[in-house]
């Protein structure tokens, strides 16, 4: 591979590499929290971190940011329906 090729590759891979690093860092945070359990409400932080990781994969790795609105809608649709399922079921379990 020539130097120019590396340049081209790096230019195209930049978002993927950045999300890779970000994912590893976020995973590090969660693993640390899980291994040490520094405070009792760590699960809140862990949940937020996981949400960030999911968003990173969706938006950057899966390139939702570059897709037309229709694809974004479908990417969001599933999560919205999962929210419906969880909310309505929890209405039952949290009030038993």
């Amino acid at each position: 591979m020539s130097h120019d090729d590396w340049q081209v590759l790096w230019q195209h891979m930049r978002p993927a590499v950045r999300s890779f690093v970000l994912l590893l860092v976020l995973l590090g945070v969660n693993v640390t929290l899980g291994a040490t359990l520094p405070f009792s409400w760590a699960y809140v932080v862990e949940g937020v971190v996981v949400a960030c990781m999911v968003l990173t994969v969706l938006l950057v790795s899966m390139e939702v940011l570059r897709e037309p609105p229709l694809m974004r809608l479908f990417a969001a649709l599933g999560f919205f329906w999962v929210a419906i399922m969880f909310t309505m079921t929890l209405v039952d379990y949290l009030s038993r």
Partner: peptide, 9 residues
Amino acid sequence: QSQLASTVF
């Protein structure tokens, strides 16, 4: 099912 859930549903 809980009473609250039944009412909501």
